[in-house]
Design a protein around this nucleic acid. Structure first.
Lengths: 333, 333
DNA sequence: TTGTAAGCGTTATCAA
DNA sequence: TTGATAACGCTTACAA
């Protein structure tokens, strides 16, 4: 690999001059500039990002910690974030936090040792103080899907309450007055906010909230299966189900199907992951603007890393995607 | 951030000594070692991976280029690769090649400037020579889903022919003698290999190959829709369909469903992406061991980066996952 | 406009 | 067993 030294020598100038033409414009004579550019080409010279980082104390790298490197939710977020980050000439480095406190901490440490110019975090387990402190210690942070008091400027999250509201309201409009809610664990703030939306819709329609129609469990298929099973076992009367996310919906459908109730139950999921539309009947869902979130996160991180970018919104708005699962069933089946 | 200098000064030793205890064991007195470790803790000292990389010319970083940062196929590959890489104390850096030649080239350049100690590539568009040359020029390469003559030691790929064979054979066994094949583009070697397997199965059952039952198009839902539509328009007689991947299968199902033929058509997809099991009827598919591929790739890359690891296999074996889509239909419907 | 030289935080060579 | 000191490839005062 050719170094700056080689270029300088061959071009007959000093390293400083080469460095100058490298870093866009400074005061370099046209002759020198041309000569240097020319020799750079000849040698196939590429500056070492490493050496630059060490010298400038900026790595042009943005770190990202997600709870699951695979899966339909984080993929699109990563993808869109990577796009804006790479377009800015920065590099995105992603690592998996697995949603566990110690893994998350380790992942972050791993990144800060590199180091990164900014960090995009989706961590649920890590205590708030650590996050805020990290930021104060000089690693700029963008926090996704989590809101910390007094740290709102660094957070990007969905209006979960609105999501819960939209879903529930639509089902009520369709005449379903007994809407169950199979939520993710209520230890998770998102779940509670979605519950608030659910309640708000009920209030508006003058329908009393019934604790016995609400369950919480894991945010995945098994959680959905368990909750739906409970719902059926308890012989609760219901004609519609609002699910905390699409995976829960899938598990619940499984159980409903076994009981021959899949077609007759109105259902809305949450997130609108790609495969929701491919299910049969297709699953209605609260659309989570994941691409938008990734994009915003990228811009925000770049801004913090000193790269100028547009202003960002911190609260994203969901919207309801209506599909077969919403329309097929009749309230009084 | 505390540097090695700070530690040295406070501990009353030289930088060299600190560096020695840092890099595991060398000849350092117990007293010095303890003292240094102690002060490291006090100062919360973390070595700069950057400076280490510059000095050693090894970054402890593995790069990875995928064709799609989101999507059900690459997610699990990345996830499992990241696990083994991180467990070895290395960092995985992923970027998106978008399956386009120029983007792929750019992505690779981006990584080699960092630099990385090895590169895991899933690139379909980039010419073979460039890949091989890159390797020769000192960036060790692991190539996924692609086999280059004389470069096999660096490649990890699925036995696609076997996959095609298994799927087709099973359908033939079930009595379907008119099996259509909706493939990905035949410019893609994988598609051709799967076709070979398809033909082999036909041969074994003494069933003549019929060109008019074979189509190729994009490896996605739209491709599947188009091909299935053609198949129906041409009034070909068929009772089973083998699809080049699960996305094609989904598109085809869509069309079949519109024609009331979904339940009566035997179908097998390829890849066995997560949602295949959630479709209704659930989709049979040729299982692609993605986790295994990611793992192997990680190990291989680490080995090339000088980190000792176990030997790896280069050819992965598929297996058939039988679900409802295979059993529901009768050959003579 | 250009060059010299110090510095970024490490490792590594060579003496001591 | 230790410590100077020169690298690694680049940036950036400061001087010329």
């Amino acid at each position: 690999m050719a170094t700056i030294k080689d270029v300088a020598k061959l071009a007959g100038v000093s390293k400083a001059t080469v460095s100058r033409v490298l870093n866009g414009n400074e005061r370099v004579s046209q002759i020198a500039r041309d000569k240097v550019k020319q020799t750079m080409k000849e040698l196939g010279y590429k500056p070492s990002a490493l050496a630059q980082a060490l010298a400038t104390n900026r790595s042009r790298t943005i770190g990202m910690v997600v709870s699951d490197l695979s899966g339909p939710f984080f993929g699109p977020i990563m993808k869109s974030a990577e796009k804006v980050i790479r377009d800015a000439g920065f590099q995105l480095v992603v690592t998996n936090g697995h949603g566990q406190e110690d893994r998350e901490r380790e992942a972050i440490e791993f990144m800060t040792n590199r180091p990164v110019d900014a960090l995009i975090l989706t961590v649920f387990a890590l205590p708030e103080e650590e996050i805020v402190e990290l930021h104060r210690n000089g690693t700029p942070i963008v926090l996704l899907n989590r809101r910390i008091q007094g740290f709102e400027d660094n957070c990007i999250y969905l209006d979960n309450k609105q999501g819960g509201y939209l879903a529930t309201k639509r089902m009520l409009e369709l005449g379903h007055d007994r809407v169950a809610f199979l939520a993710g664990h209520f230890t998770h703030p998102d779940s509670l906010e979605r519950l608030e939306g659910y309640q708000q819709a009920l209030d508006e329609f003058g329908i009393p909230f019934r604790q016995d129609l609400v369950f919480d469990d894991d945010y995945n298929e098994d959680g959905g299966r368990r909750m739906c099973q409970k719902l059926l076992n308890l012989k609760r009367d219901f004609s519609a189900i609002f699910c905390g996310n699409d995976l829960i919906a899938i598990g619940a459908r499984d159980v409903l199907n076994q009981h021959g109730k899949l077609q007759s139950t109105c259902m809305v999921g949450f997130d609108d992951v790609t495969f929701a539309q491919y299910l049969n009947p297709s699953l209605s869902s609260v659309f989570f603007p994941v691409e938008q979130m990734g994009e915003r996160a990228g811009h925000m991180a770049l801004a913090m890393a000193g790269h100028k970018t547009a202003a960002v919104t911190h609260v994203l708005q969901p919207r309801l995607i209506e599909r077969e699962s919403l329309m097929a069933a009749q309230p009084n089946d």
